[in-house]
Simulated scan of single mutants.
Amino acid sequence: MFTTKIIAVILCCLLVSSNGLQPSTCSNQGDGNYGCFDIASQGSCTEVSNQPASRDIRWPHSGIDSNIDWAIKCGDIIAYKIQWFSGGWSGWYVPGVNDMDTKVNNGNGLRRMWSYFYDHTHSYIICKTNDSNKLRGCQ
């Protein structure tokens, strides 16, 4: 019993003494926030506005493929808008959330709204990996 209490005290002391210790290379950024996180591999997101119709047939032929953005744009399109022929813009579509086309297409196939990139002006927000993580063939 006494030995168990000694072990418990030692463990408690070790936990308290190791809590908050940071490597000596970490600078304190205030409020106990130490800057030791490497975000060099983190990608970046940008908005691409008013892109003309792409005429890339892969958009309408991709069906509900959620990776066609990687194949065509080398990134993850996280939201997009379509400019209709009337001149008005759609609201934001988010792939896999609210972007299924309700129009009946050839062969009753399903497709995402980004299929309209083929023949409509469009805008999108795309996230791409950093240089060290790029897919082969991507710029």
Rank of each mutant, 00 (worst) to 15 (best):
115 S>Y: 05
8 A>G: 12
19 N>D: 04
86 S>M: 08
56 D>R: 15
95 P>H: 10
54 S>A: 14
11 L>R: 10
106 N>W: 11
114 W>C: 02
20 G>D: 05
118 Y>P: 10
32 G>N: 09
13 C>D: 08
26 C>K: 03
55 R>L: 11
57 I>P: 02
10 I>D: 06
5 K>S: 13
2 F>T: 15
133 N>K: 13
47 E>V: 12
122 H>D: 07
82 I>D: 01
92 W>G: 04
97 V>Y: 15
53 A>E: 14
139 Q>E: 14
2 F>H: 11
66 S>C: 03
39 I>A: 03
126 I>T: 06
86 S>I: 08
57 I>T: 07
73 K>S: 12
78 I>T: 07
55 R>H: 09
94 V>S: 08
48 V>K: 03
9 V>P: 06
10 I>A: 15
101 D>R: 02
81 K>D: 09
14 L>C: 14
57 I>N: 01
81 K>A: 01
74 C>W: 00
89 W>F: 04
22 Q>G: 00
96 G>F: 15
123 S>V: 12
64 I>K: 06
72 I>H: 11
35 G>R: 12
26 C>V: 07
97 V>W: 13
33 N>W: 13
129 T>P: 01
86 S>H: 04
42 Q>H: 12
115 S>Q: 10
138 C>L: 09
79 A>I: 11
58 R>A: 07
127 C>E: 00
44 S>D: 06
114 W>R: 02
8 A>M: 10
34 Y>Q: 00
131 D>Q: 09
125 I>W: 05
43 G>Y: 03
42 Q>E: 04
7 I>P: 09
16 V>Y: 12
57 I>F: 00
35 G>A: 14
135 L>D: 15
47 E>L: 12
31 D>G: 06
65 D>Y: 05
125 I>F: 05
94 V>P: 10
129 T>G: 13
40 A>N: 11
33 N>R: 05
110 L>A: 09
130 N>I: 11
50 N>W: 13
129 T>E: 09
50 N>T: 13
52 P>Y: 07
88 G>I: 15
60 P>F: 13
32 G>Q: 06
24 S>C: 01
95 P>C: 11
44 S>T: 13
47 E>H: 07
85 F>T: 15
47 E>N: 15
7 I>M: 14
81 K>Q: 14
104 V>N: 12
86 S>G: 14
80 Y>T: 00
96 G>D: 13
75 G>I: 08
48 V>I: 14
16 V>C: 11
18 S>C: 12
20 G>C: 04
129 T>I: 03
